[in-house]
Amino acid sequence: MIIINILGGLGNQMFQYAFAYSMAHKTDAVVKLDIEDFSNYDLREYELSLYNISLDLADIDEIDKLKYEQETLFKKVARKLQRTSRPLSSYYYKESGFSYDSHVYELKDNVYFQGYWQSEKYFLDYRDALLKEFLLKDGLHQESRAYEKKINQSVSVSLHIRRGDYVSNAHTNSVHGTCSLEYYKGAVRYLQSNSHPTHFFIFSDDLDWAKENLNFIENITFVSLDKDTPDHEEMYLMSQCKHNIIANSSFSWWGAWLNQNEDKIVVAPKKWFNDTTINTNDLVPKEWIRL
């Protein structure tokens, strides 16, 4: 059995699930999801249950066997692990960075994986299947359907601005920071020059800031959904736009990746983290434009 730790916001959970799906099909092992950490995690909730996913959840006994017993072994060899890129424990494997790690496929059974796995290289071979896995089980709310209709009637561009905890949480801000207004101006100019969009749809957790600062865009709609509407519907609406301008956020990353327009243009920021020494070459698909 292989167990994949699931934790973080919706975008992170989707990366972890896509990695798990890939491991299940590349190794032929039984792969299950560990969501137990959400019981002590106040920032986010487990959100994959609204999707048409097929992998099962691990029970506490299965998690204890692969995670807690072998985590102790992992810590004993942690010093040696720093001197090698190869896994020393075939039971507990923790991601070491944001680059694609081909060694994971050498571990075919009795493994607990912990990490974010933020690269499509892990799961691009299963894109068609994952598009089905990430279909919403239930229909859209009426408000979302109205936005969807407007999106489908135009050469639409989603523009995502992530602020929220990227601004209010000191630690999160120190890691991620926010995309500059100049980035968005450059991205809009690029789309206007290359795709001739007719309408921009603005998605943000700080629409007041967006309304104050995006007055340089004509033909604009600020997407405002009811607080009871799950985030999944906002991501779905992003994916229905013809093109995407994303933030340094896994949430809008998935909105763009789920976009099935064969001629889509996706603009992503070059600066994904404040620490520019972090290698993000594998994080952003090579077809996307980085500004």
Rank of each mutant, 00 (worst) to 15 (best):
M1S: 10
I2F: 07
I4K: 00
N5Q: 13
I6W: 02
I6T: 04
G9M: 03
G11R: 02
G11Q: 03
M14I: 13
M14P: 04
Q16M: 12
A18H: 13
F19D: 13
A20W: 05
M23R: 15
K26A: 12
D28N: 14
V30L: 14
V30M: 12
V31W: 11
F38S: 08
R44V: 05
E45Q: 11
Y46P: 08
S54E: 08
S54P: 06
D56Q: 10
D59N: 15
I60V: 11
D61A: 09
D61N: 13
D64L: 09
K65N: 14
E69T: 14
Q70P: 04
K76A: 07
V77D: 03
Q82C: 05
R83M: 11
T84A: 10
S90A: 11
Y93V: 15
K94G: 03
G97P: 05
S99T: 14
S99Y: 00
Y100M: 12
V104K: 04
Y105L: 15
E106M: 14
K108E: 13
D109S: 15
D109Q: 14
G115L: 06
Y116D: 03
Y116I: 04
W117H: 03
S119F: 03
E120Q: 08
K121V: 06
Y122L: 11
D125G: 05
R127S: 02
L135T: 12
K137C: 07
H141T: 07
Q142R: 09
S144A: 15
R145H: 08
Y147F: 15
E148H: 12
K149M: 12
I151V: 14
S154D: 08
V157Y: 06
V157D: 03
V157Q: 03
L159E: 00
L159I: 12
R162M: 09
G164N: 09
D165W: 07
V167S: 11
N169M: 09
N173S: 13
N173V: 07
V175A: 02
V175Y: 06
V175P: 01
H176M: 09
G177C: 10
T178C: 12
C179W: 00
S180G: 07
L181M: 11
Y183L: 06
Y184C: 08
K185G: 01
Y190S: 09
L191Y: 02
S193K: 15
N194R: 01
S195Q: 09
F200Q: 00
F201D: 06
I202C: 02
I202W: 00
I202N: 02
D208W: 06
W209N: 08
N213P: 06
N215C: 08
E218G: 10
N219F: 12
V223N: 00
H232K: 05
H232Y: 02
L237A: 02
L237Y: 04
L237Q: 01
C241Y: 08
N244V: 07
N248S: 02
N248I: 04
W253S: 01
W254L: 04
G255C: 01
A256T: 04
L258I: 00
N259R: 04
Q260W: 02
Q260T: 08
P269E: 05
K271G: 02
F273W: 05
F273P: 00
D275G: 06
D275T: 09
T276A: 08
I278P: 06
V284H: 05
I289N: 01
R290T: 14
